[in-house]
Design a protein around this nucleic acid. Structure first.
Lengths: 104, 104
DNA sequence: AGATAAGTTCGAATATCATCGAACAATGAA
DNA sequence: TTCATTGTTCGATGATATTCGAACTTATCT
Protein backbone atom coordinates (compact mmCIF):
# COMPACT_ATOMS: atom_id res chain seq x y z
CA UNK A 1 0.00 0.00 0.00
CA UNK A 2 1.54 3.31 -0.99
CA UNK A 3 2.01 6.01 1.62
CA UNK A 4 -0.93 8.42 1.67
CA UNK A 5 -0.35 12.14 1.39
CA UNK A 6 0.37 14.19 4.46
CA UNK A 7 1.13 17.90 4.31
CA UNK A 8 4.57 19.30 5.12
CA UNK A 9 4.69 21.55 8.15
CA UNK A 10 4.72 24.67 5.96
CA UNK A 11 1.31 23.79 4.54
CA UNK A 12 -0.48 23.04 7.80
CA UNK A 13 -3.33 25.49 8.35
CA UNK A 14 -5.52 26.25 11.33
CA UNK A 15 -9.02 25.94 9.92
CA UNK A 16 -8.59 22.36 8.63
CA UNK A 17 -7.18 21.45 12.03
CA UNK A 18 -10.12 22.92 13.90
CA UNK A 19 -12.53 21.27 11.50
CA UNK A 20 -10.80 17.93 11.95
CA UNK A 21 -11.07 18.29 15.71
CA UNK A 22 -14.75 19.24 15.63
CA UNK A 23 -15.86 15.61 15.47
CA UNK A 24 -16.19 13.51 18.65
CA UNK A 25 -14.67 10.34 17.20
CA UNK A 26 -11.72 12.22 15.79
CA UNK A 27 -11.23 13.89 19.16
CA UNK A 28 -11.20 10.46 20.78
CA UNK A 29 -8.52 9.29 18.37
CA UNK A 30 -6.39 12.36 19.10
CA UNK A 31 -6.76 11.98 22.85
CA UNK A 32 -5.88 8.31 22.61
CA UNK A 33 -2.75 9.08 20.59
CA UNK A 34 -1.79 11.68 23.17
CA UNK A 35 -1.49 9.04 25.85
CA UNK A 36 -0.64 5.89 23.90
CA UNK A 37 1.91 7.45 21.53
CA UNK A 38 1.27 5.18 18.55
CA UNK A 39 -1.60 2.98 17.43
CA UNK A 40 -2.73 1.08 14.38
CA UNK A 41 -6.03 1.88 12.74
CA UNK A 42 -7.63 -1.33 13.87
CA UNK A 43 -7.29 -0.22 17.46
CA UNK A 44 -10.07 2.26 16.89
CA UNK A 45 -12.64 -0.32 15.91
CA UNK A 46 -13.97 0.21 19.42
CA UNK A 47 -15.39 3.48 18.11
CA UNK A 48 -18.16 1.44 16.48
CA UNK A 49 -17.95 2.85 13.00
CA UNK A 50 -17.32 0.93 9.83
CA UNK A 51 -13.83 0.35 8.52
CA UNK A 52 -14.30 2.87 5.72
CA UNK A 53 -15.67 5.53 8.07
CA UNK A 54 -12.74 5.05 10.40
CA UNK A 55 -10.33 5.34 7.50
CA UNK A 56 -12.11 8.55 6.47
CA UNK A 57 -11.70 10.08 9.93
CA UNK A 58 -8.04 9.16 9.99
CA UNK A 59 -7.63 10.70 6.55
CA UNK A 60 -9.17 13.97 7.75
CA UNK A 61 -6.74 14.05 10.68
CA UNK A 62 -3.80 13.13 8.45
CA UNK A 63 -4.54 15.68 5.73
CA UNK A 64 -5.03 18.41 8.31
CA UNK A 65 -1.52 17.65 9.55
CA UNK A 66 -2.51 16.39 12.99
CA UNK A 67 -1.22 12.84 12.68
CA UNK A 68 1.60 11.17 10.82
CA UNK A 69 1.95 7.66 9.48
CA UNK A 70 4.55 4.95 9.79
CA UNK A 71 3.98 1.78 7.81
CA UNK A 72 5.22 -1.57 9.04
CA UNK A 73 4.08 -4.50 6.99
CA UNK A 74 0.33 -4.27 6.65
CA UNK A 75 0.00 -2.21 9.79
CA UNK A 76 -0.36 1.54 9.74
CA UNK A 77 0.93 3.17 12.88
CA UNK A 78 -0.34 6.68 13.50
CA UNK A 79 1.02 9.25 15.93
CA UNK A 80 0.53 12.94 16.69
CA UNK A 81 2.72 15.58 15.04
CA UNK A 82 3.14 17.16 18.44
CA UNK A 83 6.32 19.20 18.06
CA UNK A 84 5.38 20.68 14.71
CA UNK A 85 1.92 21.59 15.92
CA UNK A 86 3.26 23.07 19.11
CA UNK A 87 5.62 25.20 17.06
CA UNK A 88 2.86 26.38 14.72
CA UNK A 89 0.02 26.74 17.22
CA UNK A 90 1.49 26.91 20.73
CA UNK A 91 -0.79 25.53 23.41
CA UNK A 92 -3.57 24.47 21.06
CA UNK A 93 -3.20 20.71 21.22
CA UNK A 94 -2.33 20.56 24.92
CA UNK A 95 -5.50 22.48 25.72
CA UNK A 96 -7.60 20.00 23.77
CA UNK A 97 -5.92 16.82 24.91
CA UNK A 98 -6.98 17.38 28.50
CA UNK A 99 -10.66 18.01 27.93
CA UNK A 100 -13.01 15.43 29.38
CA UNK A 101 -15.11 13.49 26.90
CA UNK A 102 -18.26 14.60 28.70
CA UNK A 103 -17.61 18.08 27.35
CA UNK A 104 -17.32 16.95 23.74
CA UNK B 1 -35.97 42.61 18.50
CA UNK B 2 -36.09 39.83 21.04
CA UNK B 3 -32.88 38.48 22.52
CA UNK B 4 -31.62 35.47 20.56
CA UNK B 5 -30.81 32.22 22.34
CA UNK B 6 -27.43 31.67 23.83
CA UNK B 7 -26.55 28.54 25.80
CA UNK B 8 -25.90 28.62 29.55
CA UNK B 9 -22.38 27.68 30.53
CA UNK B 10 -23.48 24.19 31.50
CA UNK B 11 -24.55 23.45 27.94
CA UNK B 12 -21.45 24.67 26.16
CA UNK B 13 -19.74 21.81 24.32
CA UNK B 14 -16.37 21.49 22.66
CA UNK B 15 -17.25 20.22 19.19
CA UNK B 16 -19.62 23.10 18.33
CA UNK B 17 -16.93 25.50 19.51
CA UNK B 18 -14.26 23.93 17.31
CA UNK B 19 -16.66 23.85 14.40
CA UNK B 20 -17.53 27.49 14.93
CA UNK B 21 -13.84 28.38 14.95
CA UNK B 22 -13.06 26.40 11.80
CA UNK B 23 -14.13 29.25 9.54
CA UNK B 24 -11.73 32.10 8.67
CA UNK B 25 -14.30 34.88 8.96
CA UNK B 26 -15.51 33.62 12.31
CA UNK B 27 -11.91 33.42 13.48
CA UNK B 28 -11.45 37.04 12.41
CA UNK B 29 -14.48 38.07 14.43
CA UNK B 30 -13.19 36.23 17.50
CA UNK B 31 -9.72 37.73 17.20
CA UNK B 32 -11.21 41.17 16.77
CA UNK B 33 -13.34 40.76 19.88
CA UNK B 34 -10.27 39.61 21.78
CA UNK B 35 -8.62 42.98 21.27
CA UNK B 36 -11.54 45.36 20.89
CA UNK B 37 -13.69 43.94 23.72
CA UNK B 38 -17.08 44.76 22.22
CA UNK B 39 -18.37 45.44 18.72
CA UNK B 40 -21.67 45.77 16.91
CA UNK B 41 -22.47 43.48 14.01
CA UNK B 42 -22.16 46.24 11.46
CA UNK B 43 -18.52 46.62 12.33
CA UNK B 44 -17.86 43.36 10.52
CA UNK B 45 -19.18 44.53 7.18
CA UNK B 46 -15.53 44.85 6.26
CA UNK B 47 -15.53 41.07 5.95
CA UNK B 48 -17.29 41.47 2.60
CA UNK B 49 -20.12 39.09 3.17
CA UNK B 50 -23.79 39.89 2.96
CA UNK B 51 -25.70 41.03 6.01
CA UNK B 52 -27.48 37.70 6.30
CA UNK B 53 -24.28 35.70 5.99
CA UNK B 54 -22.67 37.82 8.67
CA UNK B 55 -25.67 37.31 10.90
CA UNK B 56 -25.37 33.57 10.30
CA UNK B 57 -21.71 33.51 11.33
CA UNK B 58 -22.49 35.46 14.46
CA UNK B 59 -25.30 33.07 15.23
CA UNK B 60 -22.94 30.09 14.94
CA UNK B 61 -20.53 31.75 17.36
CA UNK B 62 -23.35 32.70 19.73
CA UNK B 63 -25.02 29.28 19.77
CA UNK B 64 -21.67 27.59 20.35
CA UNK B 65 -21.29 29.75 23.45
CA UNK B 66 -18.29 31.73 22.24
CA UNK B 67 -19.86 35.17 22.25
CA UNK B 68 -22.54 36.89 24.25
CA UNK B 69 -24.94 39.65 23.35
CA UNK B 70 -25.87 42.98 24.88
CA UNK B 71 -28.63 44.93 23.20
CA UNK B 72 -28.68 48.72 23.29
CA UNK B 73 -31.34 50.29 21.14
CA UNK B 74 -31.07 48.79 17.70
CA UNK B 75 -27.42 47.92 18.16
CA UNK B 76 -26.25 44.46 19.10
CA UNK B 77 -22.99 44.50 21.00
CA UNK B 78 -21.12 41.20 21.03
CA UNK B 79 -18.26 40.16 23.28
CA UNK B 80 -16.34 36.99 24.09
CA UNK B 81 -17.41 34.75 26.98
CA UNK B 82 -13.80 34.61 28.05
CA UNK B 83 -14.02 33.63 31.72
CA UNK B 84 -16.58 30.89 31.18
CA UNK B 85 -14.62 29.43 28.27
CA UNK B 86 -11.37 29.62 30.19
CA UNK B 87 -13.02 27.74 33.02
CA UNK B 88 -14.43 25.05 30.73
CA UNK B 89 -11.53 24.72 28.28
CA UNK B 90 -8.42 26.21 29.88
CA UNK B 91 -5.99 27.67 27.39
CA UNK B 92 -8.07 26.98 24.32
CA UNK B 93 -9.13 30.49 23.39
CA UNK B 94 -5.84 32.13 24.34
CA UNK B 95 -4.00 29.73 22.05
CA UNK B 96 -6.28 30.63 19.14
CA UNK B 97 -6.42 34.35 19.70
CA UNK B 98 -2.70 34.75 19.07
CA UNK B 99 -2.49 32.87 15.78
CA UNK B 100 -1.55 34.97 12.77
CA UNK B 101 -4.17 35.21 10.04
CA UNK B 102 -1.65 33.87 7.53
CA UNK B 103 -1.95 30.51 9.24
CA UNK B 104 -5.74 30.38 8.97
C1' DA C 1 -47.28 58.31 11.30
C1' DG C 2 -43.74 57.48 8.07
C1' DA C 3 -38.93 56.73 6.99
C1' DT C 4 -34.52 54.94 8.23
C1' DA C 5 -31.17 51.93 10.37
C1' DA C 6 -29.54 47.59 12.65
C1' DG C 7 -30.08 42.84 12.75
C1' DT C 8 -32.54 38.56 12.42
C1' DT C 9 -35.13 35.03 10.01
C1' DC C 10 -36.84 32.58 5.91
C1' DG C 11 -36.40 29.99 1.69
C1' DA C 12 -33.67 28.29 -1.87
C1' DA C 13 -29.44 26.98 -4.20
C1' DT C 14 -25.09 24.92 -3.89
C1' DA C 15 -21.37 22.67 -1.62
C1' DT C 16 -19.39 19.89 1.82
C1' DC C 17 -19.58 16.08 5.22
C1' DA C 18 -20.45 11.51 7.50
C1' DT C 19 -21.51 7.04 6.75
C1' DC C 20 -21.69 2.59 4.69
C1' DG C 21 -20.84 -1.56 1.64
C1' DA C 22 -18.15 -3.15 -2.01
C1' DA C 23 -14.05 -3.27 -4.50
C1' DC C 24 -9.16 -2.80 -4.43
C1' DA C 25 -4.02 -3.04 -2.91
C1' DA C 26 -0.24 -4.80 -0.32
C1' DT C 27 1.75 -7.74 2.93
C1' DG C 28 2.40 -12.09 5.29
C1' DA C 29 1.16 -16.93 6.20
C1' DA C 30 -0.37 -21.70 4.89
C1' DT D 1 -0.16 -19.74 -5.28
C1' DT D 2 -3.95 -19.22 -2.56
C1' DC D 3 -5.94 -17.20 1.50
C1' DA D 4 -6.43 -14.03 5.35
C1' DT D 5 -5.46 -9.57 7.34
C1' DT D 6 -4.93 -4.56 7.34
C1' DG D 7 -6.14 -0.61 5.53
C1' DT D 8 -7.44 2.65 1.55
C1' DT D 9 -10.47 4.17 -2.19
C1' DC D 10 -14.83 4.46 -4.77
C1' DG D 11 -19.68 5.51 -5.34
C1' DA D 12 -23.90 6.48 -3.37
C1' DT D 13 -27.02 8.48 0.05
C1' DG D 14 -28.74 11.41 3.46
C1' DA D 15 -27.56 15.13 6.54
C1' DT D 16 -25.39 19.74 7.45
C1' DA D 17 -23.24 24.00 6.06
C1' DT D 18 -22.60 28.23 3.47
C1' DT D 19 -24.33 31.87 1.03
C1' DC D 20 -27.53 35.18 -0.74
C1' DG D 21 -31.68 38.22 -1.45
C1' DA D 22 -36.06 39.26 0.34
C1' DA D 23 -39.07 39.86 4.03
C1' DC D 24 -39.56 40.91 8.73
C1' DT D 25 -38.84 43.15 13.58
C1' DT D 26 -37.59 46.61 16.71
C1' DA D 27 -36.02 51.07 17.89
C1' DT D 28 -35.03 55.75 16.63
C1' DC D 29 -35.51 60.12 14.14
C1' DT D 30 -38.17 63.63 11.67
Amino acid sequence: MRKPYQPPKSEIKLTPILHALSDPNRLRIVQCLATRKEQTCSYYQKLNVSKSTLSHHIKVLREAGIIKLRIEGTQHYYSLRLEELEDLFPGLLPSIINIDEQLF
